[in-house]
Amino acid sequence: MDEGIKQTIKEYILKEFLPGERPDALGDSTPLVSGGILDSIATLKLVAFLEERYEIRLEAHEASAENLNTIEEIARLVQSKKG
């Protein structure tokens, strides 16, 4: 797993959705959707960011809450798309 991808995702989530949070409070397996950090609009923003940053295309079923609940899962999805 590319640690850089995780770091990029983590920085984006901290900046956009958790302003003021200590970076160490957000772990790779912190629940994002069920934990109230990503709502539907935040998820759309995150997907748009990932698509642009990594030049990939995520289909609607891939970008569902179940696939995006942790940084770990998001990074895995991005990695698989980058091929």
Binding site: L18, G20, E21, A25, T30, G35, G36, I37, D39
Partner: peptide, 23 residues
Amino acid sequence: TIVELKRFSAENLPRYMIPDEFR
């Protein structure tokens, strides 16, 4: 932590009421 406050909000409030920001 803010992560904890978000989780707590998600358990106690409808999702559309979860605050965007805590200070």
